[in-house]
Simulated assay, not measured.
Amino acid sequence: MGSPSFHELKKQASFFLKEKIKSARLVLTDVTSAQLLTEEATDEDSWPSDTRTMGLISRAAFEVDDYWRIVDILHKRLWKFDKENWRGSYRALVILEHLLTHGPERVSEEFQSDKEVIKEMSMFQHLDEKRFNWGLRVREKSERILKLLDEDLSFLKQERCKARKVTSGIKGFGSCTQISLDKRLEESRSQMYFRCNYNNDGGERNKDLNYPNHAFGDDEHLDRAALLST
């Protein structure tokens, strides 16, 4: 392998600087790991969220303090949407979809006030330099969110039921060990560093797969530890 290019070194330096800032915030302020993870997952320049990251955020949302931190970040990301800065808002939609189908039931009521900007996103048009139709991806995600936020709640209940059945059907949890959110955050950062080194084409290839990784707030009999992702 040849020497790393200037672009690669710049990306690595930027990554390490961000990590130092995050570590300092954890030590010196009242920021939580879930809050940092949500900020990272919805950042304009971040990589698309994987299912494990979305599962961590959804589980954290069942804690009152983290719930308000998470929804506040999502509100702000959605309302910053415009034709130039759309990626952060789109990634907020990805997280919101997972929260609606896997997180606390109150999420649906919380985001009724964001329907206006989500409708605006449903008309977005954009082709990237590789001719990938991101406009279509954003429109499809927006339309699905609007259906989930419908006031009669029938579609939302149906999708939550589907997600719960998938979760209940996952086997092999008997030997699962609960891993702290802080440790998972570090693992997520390590994966991002790996991508920075070995995937420099800038493409966003990950799909928005919403595999459930955690318990539901409306079923008290589910074993919380047994529903953590391996």
Rank of each mutant, 00 (worst) to 15 (best):
S3V: 15
S3D: 02
S3G: 01
S5Q: 03
L9E: 09
Q12H: 13
F15L: 11
F15N: 08
F16Y: 12
K18P: 00
A34M: 07
A41I: 14
T42S: 10
A61L: 07
V71Q: 15
H75I: 01
K76C: 06
F81T: 15
D82E: 03
R91E: 08
V94A: 14
L96T: 02
L96R: 01
H98A: 01
T101S: 03
T101E: 09
E110H: 13
Q112W: 08
D114G: 00
K115N: 02
E116Y: 02
I118T: 04
E120G: 13
E129D: 14
N133P: 02
G135T: 00
R137V: 12
R137K: 08
V138Q: 00
V138D: 01
R139P: 04
K141V: 03
K141M: 08
R144E: 07
I145M: 08
D152S: 07
L153I: 00
L156T: 05
C161D: 09
K162W: 07
A163K: 09
G169V: 00
K171Q: 07
C176P: 03
T177L: 00
L181R: 09
R184K: 08
R189F: 08
Q191S: 04
M192C: 06
Y193L: 15
C196S: 11
N197P: 00
N197I: 05
D201A: 09
G202S: 01
G203V: 11
L209S: 06
N210D: 08
A215E: 03
R224I: 15
A226G: 13
